[in-house]
């Protein structure tokens, strides 16, 4: 039988970090939402970079 998360816990120890699936989902969604504006800024900077790369000729 392939190892599962349960067998991982039995073998390596450790405790679930989140108290429930709901607790985890709340964390995941909040984390993603707080990060999103920064990632959007990076995406815009990348778009500008690709524009610049189309104009610059090198010998």
């Amino acid at each position: 039988m392939s190892p599962t998360v349960e067998t991982f816990r039995d073998t390596y120890g450790g405790e679930p970090f989140f108290s429930s699936q709901d607790d985890y989902e709340k964390f995941r969604i909040r984390f993603g939402e707080e990060l999103r504006p920064e990632l959007e800024k990076n995406r815009e900077a990348r778009r500008k970079s690709e524009e610049a790369a189309r104009k610059h000729c090198i010998a």
């Binding site: 998360v5 405790e15 679930p16 970090f17």
Partner: peptide
């Protein structure tokens, strides 16, 4: 283990 995220703490 190729499933969804499950965090364990040590």
């Amino acid at each position: 283990l190729n499933g969804s995220q499950e965090i364990f703490t040590f």
